[in-house]
């Protein structure tokens, strides 16, 4: 059973009187536990596609199913609940909460989104800190961490609530190449360890090669659409 299934998915934005298409009827399937990249030049529709898959936006037309849920039908609250329950996010600018420590940033979804009991929260956060190699930095705030460390914390935060799917929009764009590579390696390791599907966007040719499945977008359409081969 596929994790994500898009059929004739389209999204357009209204700019004044103009209707600007961002995605022009695309079809794709992403299987569970895949390591997928959406690649393409700036403005090709990568971020729009990630926003739709991440239930942050609604398609203009077409069908999009994530974890057997028609996400286009979800209202604002249901979308938030669905994201909180099933989807983790990693951002280009890390987007950690500056007043919280690394530990608390990772703990945040368990407190504010899922209401985990304190004891279970602690065990889960510590295991994730270990997994991303940040156990010794748990008490530091984001402004005391390097870019790579921040993104490690962000990876842990995306995984902490047992997300089935992690979406990363240009997760390495603000990192040097070595650090970027290590973050991608970390994401793959997490996929292997937890079975979580990772979908990330990038326009970095070296990074896109690390993906097991690549969808290349240009002008709102896939120009290559290789079959999922995570098997």
């Amino acid at each position: 059973m596929s994790l994500i299934h898009a059929q004739n998915l389209a999204k357009s934005y209204r700019v004044g009187d103009l209707e600007v298409p961002a995605l022009k009827g695309i079809d794709f399937v992403i299987e569970p536990s895949s390591f997928v990249a959406f690649v393409g030049p700036s403005g090709s529709g990568k971020s729009t596609l990630l926003n739709l898959v991440g239930c942050l936006d609604h398609p203009t037309s077409g069908k999009l199913t994530v974890l057997d849920t028609d996400v286009a039908a979800l209202n604002r609250s249901a979308s938030a609940e669905f994201r909180g329950r099933h989807i983790g996010f990693i951002f280009q600018d890390f987007n950690l909460i500056p007043v919280l420590t690394a530990y608390e940033n990772i703990e945040y979804p368990l407190v504010m989104v899922q209401n985990w009991p304190a004891a279970q929260r602690h065990d889960r956060v510590m295991s994730l800190l270990d997994a991303v190699g940040m156990a010794d930095q748990a008490g530091k705030r984001p402004d005391q961490l390097s870019g790579g460390q921040k993104q490690r914390v962000a990876v842990a935060r995306a995984l902490v609530a047992n997300s089935k799917l992690v979406l990363a929009d240009e997760p390495t764009a603000n990192l040097d190449h070595d650090t970027a590579y290590r973050i991608i390696e970390l994401m793959r390791k997490m996929r292997d360890e937890f079975g979580t599907t990772f979908v990330f966007s990038t326009h970095d040719a070296k990074i896109m090669r690390e993906a097991e499945v690549t969808f290349t977008l240009e002008d709102g359409r896939f120009i290559t659409n290789p079959p999922s081969h995570h098997d």
């Binding site: 609940e81 909180g84 996010f89 979804p109």
Partner: peptide, 8 residues
């Protein structure tokens, strides 16, 4: 950010 990660 907090809205995206599912904070109600």
């Amino acid at each position: 950010t907090i809205s995206a990660i599912g904070t109600p």
